[in-house]
């Protein structure tokens, strides 16, 4: 900072703390809601300070019936489904993008540019605008209510491919030359040299993709009808609908708490990678 006057300093921190409060308030209020019992959560005004029922709520949500009166899957199963979906999307996308970026950067082959353009075009089509026909394709392939149907349509996207392409282009040419003189073939070079050299980029991308996969709700809502395939995020939506009849906000907000702990944990604990991943790609 150029000047360090106490007054500007105080003002700066004041504004920032105000910002933090504004941003964190929704998270705080819903956390508080997860620490009270149902009775308290139906009295106006709602509490702003944590209560003592967090453990009860957690037990009921995770292992009990969850929201009473609903026929949903147990919450631990939903967490598992979300984890499976997020992992499949992350690993799948990283794997196919690494391979195709490798081919595009390190090989000269007929139709290389055709491949490039076909991948490129996916940049322009968010899943939301082609949702109906994509749904039909998934249905025709018999992939409704399956992990494959949950993850694979969200796997294809050019962004990761472009990021890896960019990373590979910054790898000095001498790495490949040196490896060729050492006698390494293409796949050996890929696994021994290229992958280790890109590992922080891979990790950064993994963080972003994990969050992308975990926070999906629209797509799972469309293609899963079987309650055993429910993901935690989409269950929130279903609970909100149920809440219009019998509000059990303590349980809903405990579920919401569980639903956001994994991605928030990932973002905070891997902040550096997260920021790197976000600025290098997006989604």
């Amino acid at each position: 900072m150029v000047e360090d006057r106490p007054l500007t300093s105080i003002l700066t921190h004041f504004v920032l703390i105000l910002g933090v409060i504004a941003i964190a308030l929704p998270i705080w209020i819903t956390f508080v809601a997860a620490t009270h019992d149902e009775l308290r959560m139906n009295q106006v005004p709602l509490p702003l300070w944590p209560g003592t029922h967090l453990l009860d709520n957690l037990t009921q949500t995770l292992f009990g019936a969850g929201l009473s009166g609903s026929q949903g899957a147990p919450v631990w199963l939903m967490l598992l489904n979300s984890l499976a979906m997020a992992m499949m999307i992350s690993f799948g996308k990283i794997a196919i993008s690494l391979l195709s970026a490798f081919a595009i950067v390190y090989f000269r082959f007929p139709f290389r540019m055709t491949c490039f353009w076909m991948i490129f075009i996916t940049l322009m089509l968010p899943v939301e605008v082609r949702i109906l026909p994509t749904f039909e394709v998934v249905a025709n392939l018999g992939m409704l209510n399956s992990y494959w149907g949950l993850s694979i349509p969200l796997i294809a996207s050019a962004t990761a491919t472009f990021m890896f392409r960019q990373v590979f282009l910054t790898v000095p040419d001498e790495m490949l030359e040196s490896a060729r003189i050492d006698g390494a073939g293409p796949m050996r070079f890929f696994f021994d040299i290229l992958l280790p050299l890109s590992r922080t980029n891979i990790a950064a991308l993994f963080v972003i993709l994990f969050i992308f996969g975990w926070t999906q709700s629209f797509w799972p809502l469309l293609i899963t009808t079987d309650t055993s395939m429910t993901t935690i995020v989409m269950s929130i939506k279903q609970m909100l609908e149920a809440a219009e009849q019998s509000p059990q906000w303590n349980i809903i907000m405990t579920t919401a708490l569980l639903a956001r702990i994994p991605p928030i944990f990932v973002v905070i604990s891997m902040q550096k990678l997260f920021v790197q991943g976000l600025t290098e790609t997006d989604k």
Partner: peptide, 22 residues
């Protein structure tokens, strides 16, 4: 401050909706 300000990114849109509805 960055640490305290970035986490809404990790909240699913539906979840964000639920928080505000509540």
């Amino acid at each position: 401050y960055r640490t305290l300000l970035i986490w809404p990114y990790a909240v699913a849109p539906v979840l964000a909706g639920a928080l505000w509805v509540f």
